[in-house]
Write a protein that binds this DNA or RNA. Structure first.
Lengths: 295, 295
DNA sequence: ACAGCTCTCTGACTAGAGTCAGAGATATGG
DNA sequence: CCATATCTCTGACTCTAGTCAGAGAGCTGT
């Protein structure tokens, strides 16, 4: 059976069984949308959910959301009131009855999950959960999109900021961006270089920059993967993609530096054909320097 | 993370990505139901699909199906005509335009599957497909329902018939039901015994019978698993359930006989605590006899 | 031949989900 | 303070999906 047929067959089995999980929401005699909304309002931390945020999360039309909330209000599960900060913004919060109802939804959904797990032996159950985790991880990995982005773009800025924060927490000597060798935006922009950002559901979850040095080897910098997406092979993917971009720009050799605390990164460089070389840039935070000949 | 949370998380990831596969059907500007129908008609072998069969397969209301077909006819994708055998029955077949349209649907659905698989490395892809197979298998296993059924019930009859057919094809000396020791229905009925059938989507896919012998050990017979559901642990499950049923009827020891060609069954008996004993029933087709003390 | 059944079709509904335009209230920068 | 933008709400729609009752044509056993 070829790959596509296997995915299709998976799709059939899973949608049939997992699709039934939505029935938990339907089982309380309320349209699915309202139950989901009830659930989502309850999921918001503490004080309730701003409507605009709900709209964004659930991708709902504003008129539609409004009507759904009215229905939930009529049932006494939700109260909608103006936000104290900005009275254009309205905030939905569950009433005690709403909290109870949501707990009931949870329970019936749990029961449906139980219907899937209970007929299995412990060993089968463990294997199913492990396989589910694997499918979930790899499908998440495949949902990640890597795009060339201008280094001044908010997504690039956020990525680099997160990268620096990460360095500060990992390096045993801390990290001060001011002490590292600076790289102005322009050096990550064609024709001087390029910058890639990995997005998951629109949020940046990784990045990598490339800085050309004329005939000298180009430099790979700012390779970062959000902690939420570790283990998906995203670092390797960014590395592959930046190497491909470099090759496309006529680069024959790439170099990079790294810190001794970044052990996974060092292992990854070695396993992807990078070989250790002496200090080539005097970067104060670096302990190791690597090089790879492309193509 | 507990089991239920893991299933929920799987659900979220998968429905988001896999749900998109339906978009392939929607992408041609036609309601989902019609595209599915078009696809299903094309999937029928050769001459077209009988409406009653389509209705059954897709669980559609007869009026609803009729309307959908009219729409597809109006688009020139389908012709519906009376069956030559029975002119109450109508048969839907694709026109050449319909065949082309269906191929187009296939292509856009393939492209969506590709969108999932393409961003992955070969190794990741192989792991994803393997994990999908595993999830599919185990979720199918958990969809199997084992019920006590009267031995005269059509599902029980069909199971036993399939069991005999299987024996005939496996035994090196063939199998003639008339030569085996007969078991009248009543011996698989309480208070003389019991009979379990495993159902998948309403179809029988396995069975097992129990025949009491007063204070003597009870006998497990007719243990069968459909070839379509091998490898799901269904044989072991039926064995467990019949042992539980036996224990519930006060049985302390169960026995069974088996043929040397049924090697998986023999291995299963051994691994489930059955020990070999001498011939206790003179069954002409048996080569091995086993016994297990319950509880 | 005809009663009773099977199969399909039509008409008349309902419900959920979602879209769109614009009104009204409130904030904010200049 | 005014123009402009933001946020929510209402009213008026559309579409898909699906249900139900009953009519009409055709088959089958007696």
């Amino acid at each position: 059976m070829d790959a596509i047929a296997r995915v299709r067959s998976f799709n059939r089995t899973v949608t049939e069984r997992i699709g039934a999980l939505d029935d938990g929401y339907l089982s309380r005699g309320r349209p699915l949308g309202q139950s989901r909304l009830l659930w989502e309002i309850g999921a918001s931390t503490g004080g309730g959910a701003e409507l605009r945020e709900l709209r964004e999360r659930l991708e709902l039309d504003s008129g539609y959301l409004s009507r759904q909330l009215r229905a939930l209000e009529a049932d006494g599960f939700v109260r909608v009131e103006a936000s104290p900060d900005d009275s254009r913004v309205r905030v939905a919060r569950l009433t005690p009855a709403g909290v109870a109802e949501r707990a009931e939804l949870d329970r019936s959904s749990d029961a449906l999950v139980g219907g899937i797990l209970d007929p299995l032996t412990d060993r089968q159950r463990e294997r199913l959960l492990a396989a589910m985790d694997e499918v979930g991880r790899l499908m998440t990995a495949s949902a990640v999109e890597v795009r060339t982005v201008d280094p001044a773009d908010p997504a690039a800025r956020a990525s680099v900021a997160a990268y620096f924060t990460e360095l500060a927490s990992r390096f045993d000597i801390g990290f001060d961006p001011a002490r590292t060798r600076p790289t102005p935006d322009d050096e990550f922009r064609e024709p001087n270089g390029t910058f890639l950002v990995a997005f998951l559901h629109g949020d940046p979850v990784g990045c990598v920059g490339l800085k050309l040095h004329g005939d000298e080897p180009a430099e790979v910098k700012r390779l970062w993967v959000a902690s939420s997406t570790r283990g998906l092979g995203l670092g390797a993917r960014l590395l592959r993609e930046i190497e491909a971009a470099a090759a496309g720009l006529g680069v024959a050799v790439v170099r990079l530096d790294t810190n001794r605390t970044l052990t996974e990164a060092i292992a990854m460089y070695r396993s992807h054909g990078y070989v250790e070389i002496p200090d080539f840039n005097g970067e104060p935070y670096a302990d190791f320097w690597f090089e790879k000949r492309l193509g």
